[in-house]
Design a protein around this nucleic acid. Structure first.
Lengths: 342, 342
DNA sequence: CTGTTAGCGCGTTCAG
DNA sequence: CTGAACGCGCTAACAG
């Protein structure tokens, strides 16, 4: 009745061998129906529950993967996790969530966990990675949304430059030309690509940006607020802001309002990601949507293929992004200078 | 050099027995220094990393706990996770994050994982639990912030009724008397306790609430928006709202503004939790803070004590809450009726 | 269809 | 201080 029965107890009670019990549970069609029923009855009677550790030990697999994110405080990862978890659980895998806190030592720690066979594989959503690890000894890994320049690993990506161009073009189409950009932490590839998309789009449109319009942030709410102060401090005119994520966009909006500038009346703001912040924001945020859940789904699919040995090491999946127009962007005022020097 | 060396390979290379290698790694002082050094050299040379599965199998422990939350979409859990993870990792434990999605079947699934010895214990942050499980057969579990009436389990709590009273009193102190309440899903204990705190505080203050001022929500942004519509639909006057979490408070604020009611000028709004929503909100949200990270810290401590067998089954820890005054609440206007029938 | 057997890699006796 | 040997619970051969 208690949970401490093992497969031998069941076998003894059912008068069969342990192999038969094992088969009944794992491969029932190999067992004669009557035998099967007897065994199952005994399993129930003893409250037998197979020991996963023993099974894993024997099979040399844990059926567990680790999802390692840059910073778990970022709600962005919540839906990614859901996607990963859906695919994982329907394929019999468990998901461990790890928080790298942007610390290479912690990334290393999680890689060690896989090498110790705590888990079968590692899904990386972290930009940094310790370099001392030789490629050969690396455990099964796949990457999502990040760039690890020195490695060749299966990856799920978005077109960051193209998505940034989409955001910038939206503002151009509304008549804005003085478009500031709040970037993520440069020189990370992701941030650099978005800066490039912004700059190129403006240049191609014949309004190459004043470099004072580019402010470096770190994806935090606070850095969005600070960036607005920085822009005013630089004394540069702008009628729109393209922020590299929603959280900074919200920070920027809040600071603009504190300064008496309305959004989108005074300044238009567009974000990036389409997280919960975009809907919670007031006004609701125009943003570039990343399909978070689907990204999770795809990267877990890659992981499974990788674990089953059927996947090219340089497989790449590019996920689409999409402009979501809400209420934080509006046509530019003809007398655009009204905001200057505010 | 690759990671596939086992303890026998090390023993062979070092010319000692496997037992000596094991001791060197786990209990170095039992080994003569020179032997130890030789062994360690060989460990390094072979890139030996002990197989965690084998160790766990042998020890009948996984050094892993599961943190099962009601709904991972709720950013509230992010900091709880951090607290859990901090304590866990410094005690040598790993944390698996599970998402119950308010589905008892999923809770059951995670309990099974523990019974299968996938993990050593389960931290429950879910209100529902399948009742068919007999108390005796339950694996090590501790609970945080939730009430499982039928069970007696170690628990970390807050004083929900007291905290709700604190929020309500803040509004009373500002001169409000027509105070609406957006509750969580009644009849869950947590929601009921907050409703009780609201009602009792008003009654004690001599302004027993019109029952039309109580609107049932489900902790979602959308239900906060809908609740505002519901209040206006009921035609009941209110100058302040106490929402049972921040997300609903933000939803309420946004809908109020869409209706042309300013916050806090027209209506004051107070939330509950102090999640990232409170700071991202415009205006910044007055709220009742729960110490999320510390709650995680405490509940993981309880878990460890429970796993080490030293913990009363009915241990309880009550964590303090705190009023955080920001800008979404303001003194009531003398001509309070200005909002009515808006 | 079923039973027998041999480990998976490690920790822990118990002798020396 | 060290080595030999056993077994944790299960699954995957291989025989019947």
């Amino acid at each position: 009745m208690s949970g401490s029965a093992n497969i031998r107890d069941v076998a003894a009670m059912a008068g069969v061998s342990v192999a038969t019990v094992s088969r009944t549970l794992k491969n029932p069609d190999l067992v004669r129906p009557e035998t099967r029923e007897t065994v199952l009855r005994c399993v129930a009677a003893l409250g037998f529950v197979p020991n996963a550790q023993a099974r894993h030990f024997r099979r040399q697999a844990t059926d567990t993967v680790i999802l390692l994110v840059r910073d778990i405080s970022n709600p962005f990862y919540l839906d990614v996790f859901k996607g990963v978890e859906d695919v994982a659980s329907s394929a019999g895998y468990k998901v461990l969530m790890g928080d790298a806190r942007s610390d290479p030592a912690r990334v290393h720690h999680y890689i060690e966990m896989v090498r110790e066979r705590h888990a079968d594989g590692l899904i990386l959503m972290t930009g940094s990675m310790p370099v001392e690890l030789e490629d050969a000894g690396l455990p099964p890994m796949v990457v999502a949304l990040e760039y690890l320049p020195t490695r060749k690993l299966p990856t799920v990506l978005i077109d960051n430059e193209g998505a940034a161009a989409m955001a910038t073009r939206h503002l151009l189409d509304l008549g804005h030309t003085a478009i500031a950009h709040l970037s993520g932490p440069v020189p990370e590839v992701m941030s650099v690509a978005r800066v490039a998309g912004w700059r190129k789009t403006l240049t191609d449109a014949g309004v190459p940006p004043d470099e004072r319009l580019a402010v470096r942030g770190d994806f935090s709410l606070a850095s969005g607020e600070a960036a607005v102060d920085e822009l005013y401090g630089r004394g540069v005119f702008f009628s729109a802001i393209f922020a590299s994520n929603d959280e900074m966009a919200v920070g920027a909006i809040n600071r603009l309002r504190e300064r008496g500038v309305s959004v989108p009346g005074g300044v238009s703001v567009i974000g990036f990601d389409d997280t919960i912040f975009a809907v919670a924001c007031n006004p609701p945020l125009t943003t570039v949507r990343q399909p978070q859940r689907d990204i999770g789904v795809e990267v877990m699919r890659l992981m499974i293929e990788r674990l089953e040995g059927r996947l090219a090491p340089d497989a790449q999946v590019v996920m689409p992004t999409e402009l979501v127009v809400r209420s934080s962007t509006a046509p530019a005022k003809p007398d655009g200078r009204m905001v200057a020097g505010q």
